[in-house]
């Protein structure tokens, strides 16, 4: 059995009168890619924010590397957060800085390294995501795929223990999607101790990159299995989602 890196137990969260997470239990193994799938608006992004300790849960616990996030002080949570890298849906690059400065930013903030060391590391990471030619471009001059890669480089630059992706391929064409998927897979394979969590609703991409797949539905994890078991699952909700059918237990919101 693989070591558990992140353990979520009985996580509940409401915003106003809307209950988004209704008791999420999820064990995320170290050294693998876990993809969390679910329909839009099922609280996938909210779950990611909980893993980072950015949002306090209403009920339940989140343990990262054996430490209960909300039993730590704010400073302890921040130290733990510094071991995460996060790739945002639209990359969330700082648009006042060029690619180099964006990727160097976490190092400047946290590493205390000399400029030379920072430069070497930044160029190394940018090369690993295939962005060596765009080092001094501004985010506004990049294509969607390049932005994602720059976002990935920024998340990777400090060699995080945990890497979170929020819908990494939304809005990309199929070829670009395949490229980013390959990059996510390659990143994982190059960093054996890395724990990756990907939020997605793209089934094709999910089956390409996942080691394990969890499905979030109506605020709970209804199935969490390795990729092949998940693919063959006959859970009606999972089947409907995987096959993208209209008829089934998931009611489309037509109102």
């Amino acid at each position: 059995m693989m070591e558990i890196a992140i353990r979520v137990q009985g996580l509940k969260k409401s915003f106003g009168s809307q209950q988004v997470l209704r008791g999420v239990d999820l064990e995320i193994p170290r050294g693998a890619i876990t993809v969390v799938i679910g329909r839009s608006g099922t609280g996938k992004s909210v779950l990611l924010k909980h893993l980072l300790g950015l949002v306090p849960p209403d009920e339940g616990t989140i343990e990262v590397g054996g430490q209960d996030l909300w039993k730590l002080r704010e400073s302890g949570r921040r130290d733990l957060r510094a071991r995460f890298g996060m790739v945002f849906q639209n990359a969330a690059l700082f648009d006042s800085m060029d690619v180099f400065e964006n990727v160097a930013f976490p190092l400047r903030e946290h590493s205390g390294w000399e400029e030379e060391q920072i430069g070497t590391r930044v160029r190394e990471v940018l090369a690993s995501v295939g962005l060596s030619s765009a080092v001094h471009k501004l985010p506004s001059e990049l294509s969607g795929g390049m932005r994602k890669r720059a976002g990935l480089a920024r998340a990777l630059v400090r060699n995080p223990d945990y890497l979170l992706y929020d819908e990494p391929t939304t809005g990309l064409d199929p070829i670009m999607t395949a490229q980013i998927d390959a990059l996510i897979r390659a990143t994982q394979d190059q960093h054996p101790g890395l724990t990756s969590v990907v939020i997605s609703h793209d089934m094709q991409a999910t089956f390409r990159i996942a080691d394990r797949i969890a499905m979030l539905h109506e605020g709970r994890v209804i199935l969490h299995e390795d990729r092949e078991t998940f693919r063959q699952s006959d859970h009606p909700v999972v089947r409907q989602f995987v096959e993208g059918r209209l008829d089934g237990p998931i009611r489309p919101d037509l109102s």
């Binding site: 924010k49 921040r78 648009d95």
Partner: peptide
């Protein structure tokens, strides 16, 4: 506001920067 809606503020938080 632009930084908020493009998640740049969330990005700062995710990098453990207040």
């Amino acid at each position: 506001g632009t930084m908020r809606v493009t998640e740049q503020i969330d990005a700062l938080e995710s990098m453990a920067i207040n």
